[in-house]
Amino acid sequence: MKKRYTYLYNGEFLPLLGLIDMLLKNHIVPQNIKPDTADFDLFDETVLLEVKNLDATMQQMIKVFGKQVFTTIYYCFLSEHEYKELLIYYFLAHYLTYGHDIYVMRNLTSVHEVLKISQYVSRENHKLKGFLRFKELENHVLYAEMAPVNNIIGLLSKHFKRRLSQEFWIIKDTKRQIISVYDKKNFYIVNADSFDLFPLNESLEERDYQKLWLRFYQTIGIKERANSRCRRNFMPKKYWQYILEVKDEL
């Protein structure tokens, strides 16, 4: 039997695609694909390949696979799934066989998984579009913290770039220690360590609006219909830490 290797990439999306592209072209079936920072078993045999012409590879892959596939696998990539790279590999391999039909071929395990994970990421992104809470700082900058399961800060930033285009805002992912900074033109995602956040003093009005919001939240619930199960279903407790109106109920 042909020996299978674990292939390494640098943890970023495009290099991963470059790697998968190369594997597919050369008909290599990997044992696994992992970022080079991952922990390895003693017996894993790893290979780090250098992939050239990433831009050209990407353009060509978009041509071959189309935008929908690209979005699907990108969302999957943003998840924390242990085998996401391998799943993406198999997803694309299936695509080469079945074309766009794979979107209905959920009986294939890897297809099913990739679509499921991708949807999970998309849904978490959607949830946080609602659950994110900004506070206004002294200098009128809006600041929000979150700790999502998936790495959705980029997707979320795109949403707020459209929605709050005339504001300066910062979103911090405290789990991954990364921040997204928006300067009314573009947003930049950087490592939190490499960026010195000025003292985060709240503006004078901030406390008043928080109080108004809390009061509104407490008033709007109908006590004859109280249903904490239903509330938790829609707004899981893992998000409460950063949701102003419920964090004190934790």
Partner: peptide, 23 residues
Amino acid sequence: GTIGNTSFSGICHSFASDGRCIS
């Protein structure tokens, strides 16, 4: 407008003590 937009699918921002969405 310059402040805000609408989302075609709608967005729930919170859920009240009765489990109803607050958007």
